[in-house]
Write a protein that binds this DNA or RNA. Sequence first.
RNA 1: GGGCCCGUGGCUUAGCCAGGAUAUAGCACCGGGCUUCUAACCCGGGGGUCGUGGGUUCAACUCCCACCGGGUCCGCCA
Length: 570
Amino acid sequence: MIVLYLNFVEQVTSVMSDTIRSAGFEVDDLGLEPSQHADLACRVAFKLASVAKKSPKDIAEQIASAVVLPDDSLIESIQAQGPYLNIKANRKYLDGTVATIRQKKEAFGGDFCEGTIVLEHTSANPNGPLHVGHIRNSILGDTLGRVLKRVGYDVDTQYYVNDMGRQIAIVSWAMKNFDFDSEKKGDHAIAGIYIKANAWLEEEPDRVAEIDRLMQLVESGDEETIQRFDEVVGIAVDGIRNTLLRMNVIHDDFVNESGFIRSGAVSRIVDEIKATGRTEMDDGALVVDLSDHGFEKTLVIQRSDGTSLYTTRDLAYHEWKAEQGERVIDVLGADHKLISGQLKATLRSIGKQEPEIVIFEFVSLPEGSMSTRRGKFITADELLEQVESQALVEVENRRPDMPDEFKEQVARMVGIGAVRYDIIKVSPEKSTVFDWKEALDFEKQGGPFIQYSHARACSILRKAEEEGLWDPKREIDPSVLLEDGEMVLIRKMALFDHVLERSASELKPHMLATYARELADAFNQFYRFSPVISAEEATVRNARLGLVDCARIVLANVLETLGIEAPESM
RNA sequence: GGGCCCGUGGCUUAGCCAGGAUAUAGCACCGGGCUUCUAACCCGGGGGUCGUGGGUUCAACUCCCACCGGGUCCGCCA
C-alpha cells in the first residue's frame, strides 16, 4: 500500500469537491495548500462568498458540517476555523508515510511524471576556466536535472560546446603567438593566453583580420584550422569538465557546435528561414525580421562574410534537441534573455519546437561584473580550494582524533555541499555579489547543517546496531510515535513529494533547498527532545529507531537531489 | 532613451506568477542549555512603514500604474 501526501491531496480534493457540490456551490479551484495550521488548508470559502452572498465564515462552517468522510480515508477531520477549512490527516497517513519510506528507501520521493527532456546548462565558452558566475548556471542546471530525474523524467543533460566562435578563434590564434603555461591546469592556461591576446588585439586592431580569417577557414572546413581549434577546445573542456565533476555536476553529453555546420543543418535551417520571406540583407549581413513577434530589432543570422554566428548554430542545435526529447529546457544567464526570445521566435516562425528557458541573474564582484576577456573573475577551482581548506579547519576542530583521510574526505563533501547549497538556495532571479567572507563563512543551517543531520541519524543507527538494539529490517509500530516532534518530522517527510512536484513543474530547484533545511530542522528537534536509544519502552525505542531510519533515508534522498553528498559521519 | 529582472529587520534571504489566518529563515545582537544518541546542535528574546506614492479589492509583500534606487540587454560577441 502506497500512502503518501499526493494521495492525501487527491482524497481531500475529491471529498471537498463532493461536499461543495452537495452544499449547492460550484467551484473549480479549491485553493488547497499545506499550512502551518493543518496538513492542508482550503480557502474556497473566500471564493464562494461573493457568489453565495454569504460571509466566508458561514460558508466554511456550512461546508465543514456537510463533510462526509469515506471509511477508508486518510483524513482525520475537516474543520472550519473562521473563513478557512483546515484539513488534518489521520494516523493512517502518518503510519503509512513511515511504512512507505522504509519500504521504498532511496526510491522514496518522486516518480510520478514521465517523458523525455533535453536539459542544457553551463555551456560556458571554452576560453578559460569556469568562474563563480558560471557555476550558478551549473548548479542550477544540475540540481534541476536531478529534480526532473527524481520526479520521473528521462533527462539528458547537455553541455553545448562553442568550438568555433570568435573567442575560440582568438584562443587558437593566441596559442601561436603567446606562451602557453603548461604547468597550469589547462583551462586556466587557456585563459592566460586568451586574456593576453585580447589586450594585444585592442592595441593592434589590424590583427583582427587574422581572427576573421581563422573563422572563415574553420567554417569552410579547413582541416588544419579545425585541428588547431579542436586542440585548444579540448584542453579547455577537459579542465572545465574536471571542475564540474568536482562539484558533482554531471553532463550526459558534450555537444559540439561545429557538428551542425558539418552536417549541413545550419545551412538547411538558414534556407528554411529564408523561405519564410522574413529575411533581408542589411549591410551584407543576413537578418531576420521578427517584428511580428514583438522584436523591434532584426536578428543577424549570417555575417557579411558569409560565416554563421552562435545564434545560427544554436537554431540548428535546438532543432536537433527537439528530436532528442519531448521537452527542451535551457538554463541561461540573464544576458541571454533577449537573444533567447529571438531564438524562440525564429524557431516558432519555421514551425519548430521552442525551448523552455530558465533564466538566472548575474553574479558580480564587488568591483563590478566578471569578464573572462579582461581577466576579471574568481575561478570555481579557487573557490572550491578555499572552501575545502576552510572546511578542513572546521573538521580539525571538531574531530581531531580522526585519521587525515577521514578529515579530508569530510572537508571535501562539506565544502562542496556548502557551495552548492549557498548557490541553489537563492532564487535565480536575484542578482548576487560574490563575497569571499560570506563564501567561507559556513552559514548555520546551510549545506553542512543538513549533512550533519544525516550524519547524526546514521550515527544513532550505527550505535544502536552495535548495541544489538537495531536491525534495519526490523518491523516497527509507528503508531506509538505520538510526540509533537515525531509527528512534525513525519509530516515534513511526507511533503517531499509535494516539494518535488512544485519544484519540477515550476522549474525552481531552490524550493528544495528550503525544504531540506526544514527537514533537517525537524529531525534535529525530534532527536533533541525524544531519546532514541535510551527510550524506556522497547516498542517506542524501536519505533523511534525506525523513524531515525526514515529521516536518514529522506535526508539522503533530498541531499542526493541537491547534488550534495550525505556523509555517514562528520 | 527603450525592454527585462531585483528592492522584505543592521546584513543575506523565503513568500509574490495562482491576493486571504500573527511576513520565512539564517548571520549579527541579548539570555539559557554539553556526566545523557557528534553542541557543524537546541530553547528563549529584542529588532520589519515588505523601496516610495497612487489605484483595484471585503482583503495587497502578492495584482495594476507612476516614480526612485541597483543590475542587465539593446544586429554581424556568446
